[in-house]
């Protein structure tokens, strides 16, 4: 049997180490991302899951270096992309990397394309910026990527404007822009949230196909465990700006080791079980400008201990390639 792990190349294309992104506000410093580390290998899909406000989107923006400065700032850590740390480099240098080595698919297809430029213009623009090739080839390349994302009659649709396309179609165009310069890493920030279910399934399959073809590494930001199970090789569960559990999809689903992961999984509706009420996690995540010294999940945790409130748990190995930040793990 071919397992997920053997299929994946071992070469690391993106390595994040102790990344901290803070925002200065009048309530204090908001630690939106506070010391996360992970590696992304070639051809691998990493899912980042967690509830709203846990730092998923700020992680994504940090990786693209699109944090609004001020109030935000990457205060420490490194993001090594293709052997180069992109945290200290200048904005001009970063602009060359965005779209070419690391690309982004954002959530809402209805607003993510510029209404006053044609589809063709918007795809070609990305290619023009990063590839020094004649105009003719740019047009050809744009058509090629549009066909790759299954835009029917791409030759005639390039002249269309976003308002002439459906949501699913627009999201494919956004995808086409993402892959137009053959990036190594594609960050997909809940790309299917606003699509209906059948279109969603098509889109996910499309992403998978493109990934297989070009050995693309994908970071999939979502709160949908169904998508995680379908799309991802590994999962990082985020809570209050930190990764609390990290492992292969199988590890996370079969052996969740952090109480938060367990709670998240328990709150997913299931076809094979009849319940009166869906499970929900009591309480609220702590405010990010006023994090407790101990574990941030302690006040909601069903198995909390004194130790959890006093000290933040270290990240410990549960098994090979599976870690969790919980005192419960021995």
């Amino acid at each position: 049997m071919v397992t997920a792990d053997t299929r994946i190349d071992t070469e690391v294309v993106l390595s994040v180490d102790d990344l901290r992104t803070h925002f200065t506000t009048r309530w204090g410093t908001v630690k939106a991302v506070d010391g996360i580390s992970f590696d992304l290998r070639r051809g691998e899909t990493l899912g980042i899951v967690g509830e709203s406000g846990c730092g998923k989107s700020v992680t994504m923006l940090s990786l693209m270096r699109l944090i609004p400065i001020p109030p935000g700032k990457i205060v420490s850590g490194s993001i090594v992309l293709d052997g180069e740390d992109i945290v200290p480099i200048s904005e001009q240098e970063m602009a060359k990397i965005r779209g070419s080595k690391i690309a982004l698919i954002i959530q809402d297809p209805m607003t993510s394309l510029n209404p006053v430029f044609s589809i063709g213009d918007q795809v070609e623009e990305a290619i023009k910026i990063h590839q020094d090739i004649p105009k003719r080839s740019i047009t050809d390349r744009a058509l090629e990527v549009l066909r790759k994302v299954n835009i029917p009659a791409a030759e005639s649709r390039v002249k269309d404007y976003p308002h002439q396309m459906s949501g699913g179609m627009r999201q494919r165009v956004v995808g086409a822009i993402g892959i137009s310069c053959q990036p190594q890493v594609l960050i997909a920030d809940e790309p299917t949230t606003s699509l209906d279910v059948t279109i969603q399934a098509q889109y996910l399959k499309l992403l998978k196909d493109i990934q297989k073809e070009s050995d693309l590494s994908i970071i999939f930001i979502t709160h949908d465990f169904g998508i995680v199970a379908k799309m991802c090789d590994r999962v990082a569960v985020m809570y209050a700006g930190r990764i609390v559990e990290h492992g292969s999809v199988r590890d996370i689903f079969n052996n969740p080791s952090h109480p938060y992961t367990e709670a998240l999984l328990a709150s997913v509706p299931r076809m094979d079980r009849v319940v009166d009420r869906l499970y929900s996690i009591e309480g609220q995540p702590p405010p990010l400008h006023d994090l407790p010294v101990g574990c941030a999940f302690a006040n909601r945790c069903p198995v909390v201990m004194d130790k959890c409130i006093e000290t933040y748990p270290e990240i410990k190995a549960v098994s090979d390639g599976h870690t969790a930040a919980c005192w419960k793990v021995e």
Partner: peptide, 22 residues
């Protein structure tokens, strides 16, 4: 503040072009 400006920046468009064109 719109999403398409975010996407344009993610494409690698420089700040000047973002403001003057997009």
């Amino acid at each position: 503040d719109s999403e398409y400006i975010k996407l344009a920046r993610a494409k690698g468009v420089n700040s000047r072009t973002i403001i003057m064109k997009h």
